[in-house]
């Protein structure tokens, strides 16, 4: 490695003389002292009893300490230490002789083998099988190939709708222009198929498919709360404030703004969802409490390759 420009004698100093700047040396030292003072200040702020701006002051003192060191080092490089411009040749891109030798070692080592394809085949088989064996324990990670749990929902005909504290919903409590989150009585809230949104719309405005007649007593509708696009909770309800001049009521997912029309059985109005929000049939019992009339209209949650969309379980 030659760092000296061509033609200069070898015995010359390797590092060129730097800029002599005693004043800069003093400044560097002062900055380093500043760093030490800030670091000690950090220790001090940490050590005293908790107070409201402690965290901000810790950040400030630590950052100041680092900033002082940064300034000192950059000044050291710019004003105190030599920063000469040097040149050298780029390394050769290739070493043809070594390339040739490596190739020869590989070729000549295998030159005596008569059944090369047999060996390569057997080696490949062993490697593949060992690879598969090494991957096999990964099957224990989860219920691979068993998609049944993805379809499962806790909703059955007759199951009561309760709020997040377990109190049953009465039909008369469900008002228009707002929405309610309900769960099946006695079931875990963590199941994707558990939570539903309940809304009341004007029964005259209902345009449900004919096979869903009677799913919405008094205009009360229920849908899976889990967006069939990407599993977020459908947590927004668009309600028109100025009647006919605005688009109708809609359930909206806050993640990617898939928008569903409750009056049309959860049909997609806008956004990336590729299928409707699954609807849950409802009934009102003699006590006026809301109950499920069966399972959902479609499979709940986000879709996958081969999902039977019409089949909740």
């Amino acid at each position: 490695m030659t760092t000296s420009p061509d033609g200069e004698p070898e015995s010359r100093d390797i590092v060129a003389a730097g800029p002599e700047s005693p004043r800069s040396e003093v400044t560097v030292a002062a900055l380093l002292v500043g760093a030490a003072v800030s670091a000690i200040a950090f220790i001090g702020v940490y050590s005293v009893e908790k107070f409201s701006t402690q965290h901000e002051l810790m950040g400030l003192t630590l950052a100041a300490s680092f900033a002082f060191v940064a300034a000192a080092l950059i000044l050291l490089g710019e004003r105190v230490l030599p920063s000469e411009e040097v040149a050298e040749d780029y390394p050769e891109v290739a070493a043809p002789q070594e390339e040739e030798e490596v190739a020869k070692v590989m070729e000549e080592s295998a030159a005596g083998i008569t059944r090369k394809r047999l060996l390569v085949g057997a080696g490949g088989t062993a490697g593949g099988a060992i690879g598969l064996a090494a991957l096999t324990p990964a099957l224990s990670l989860g219920p691979w190939f068993e998609v049944a749990p993805l379809y499962r929902t806790p909703w059955r005909a007759g199951r009561r709708l309760v709020d997040d504290e377990g109190k049953p919903y009465k039909a008369e409590e469900i008002e228009q222009e707002t929405f309610y989150t309900a769960f099946p009585e006695g079931s875990s809230h963590r199941n994707l198929g558990a939570s539903i949104v309940v809304v009341r719309v004007d029964p005259a405005a209902l345009m449900l498919p004919p096979e869903r007649a009677g799913w919405a007593p008094e205009g009360i509708l229920a849908f899976s709360k889990i967006c069939p696009h990407a599993a977020c909770a459908v947590a927004l309800y668009r309600k028109p404030t100025y009647g006919p001049t605005q688009p109708g009521p809609a359930l909206v997912c806050p993640c990617h703004y898939s928008t569903f029309d409750p009056g049309k059985g959860g049909e997609v109005l806008f956004g990336p969802a590729g299928r409707p929000l699954p609807q849950l049939p409802l009934t009102v019992d003699a006590a006026g409490e809301m109950r499920a009339g069966g399972n959902f209209s479609d499979a709940i949650g986000p879709s996958w390759w081969g999902i039977d969309m019409e089949q909740p379980h």
């Binding site: 696009h229 986000p302 879709s303 390759w305 081969g306 999902i307 969309m309």
Partner: peptide, 8 residues
């Protein structure tokens, strides 16, 4: 009724 490539 079968989904092949869902939107996401």
């Amino acid at each position: 009724d079968y989904n092949l490539i869902p939107n996401p």
